[in-house]
C-alpha cells in the first residue's frame, strides 16, 4: 500500500515525530511505500539545519532518524507557507527575502500545499501526527 504522512508537532516539544518515525519505519519493514512525509504547522521546525538534540533525550536524535528515512528514498516535504514564516528558508527564499543565511536542512525540501494533496491523492492511506 501507499501511505502519505503528515507531522504537525515541533521537535522535542511534542511526540509527533517519534510516532511518525516509528510508524514510517514499521511501514517500510512491512513492505509498504511512503509517497511523502509532509511537515505542516509547527512540524516545519524539524527541517531546520541547526538542531542540537537535548542530552535529556538519550539515544534520540530526530534529525539523524529523518536523515536515515531520507537516505532510504523517503521524500520529506515542508510546507513553504508554514515554513518561511517560522524562519525555515532555502537558498532561493534566503535571497528573495534578503536573509543572512539559509536554514533548511539538506534532508528536507520546501514545497507548496499542492504537494500534500498530491501525495494524499496518490496514497491509499493518510495518517496525521498532531502536536
Amino acid at each position: 500500500m501507499i501511505y502519505a504522512l503528515a507531522v504537525h508537532g515541533a521537535p522535542y516539544s511534542s511526540n509527533a515525530a517519534e510516532h511518525a518515525i516509528g510508524f514510517a519505519e514499521a511501514l517500510l519493514a512491512c513492505g509498504h511505500q511512503i509517497e511523502r512525509v509532509f511537515f505542516f504547522h509547527e512540524g516545519v521546525y524539524h527541517s531546520l539545519n541547526s538542531h542540537v538534540p537535548p542530552q535529556t533525550r538519550y539515544n534520540v536524535n530526530l534529525a539523524r532518524r529523518w536523515q536515515s528515512l531520507h537516505s532510504g528514498g523517503i521524500e520529506l516535504a515542508v510546507c513553504i507557507a508554514s515554513g518561511i514564516k517560522r524562519g525555515v528558508v532555502n537558498e532561493t527564499e534566503q535571497e528573495r527575502y534578503d536573509l543572512p543565511s539559509d536554514t533548511l536542512s539538506k534532508t528536507f525540501e520546501l514545497v507548496g500545499l499542492g504537494q500534500l494533496i498530491g501525495a494524499i491523492a496518490t496514497a491509499d492511506r493518510y495518517v496525521e501526527f498532531p502536536a
Binding site: M1, Y3, F23, A26, C30, H32
Partner: peptide
Amino acid sequence: YDGLVALTEVHS
C-alpha cells in the same frame, strides 16, 4: 508499531 501498521491496512 507493526500492529499499528496492520490496523491501518484494514481501516479507512
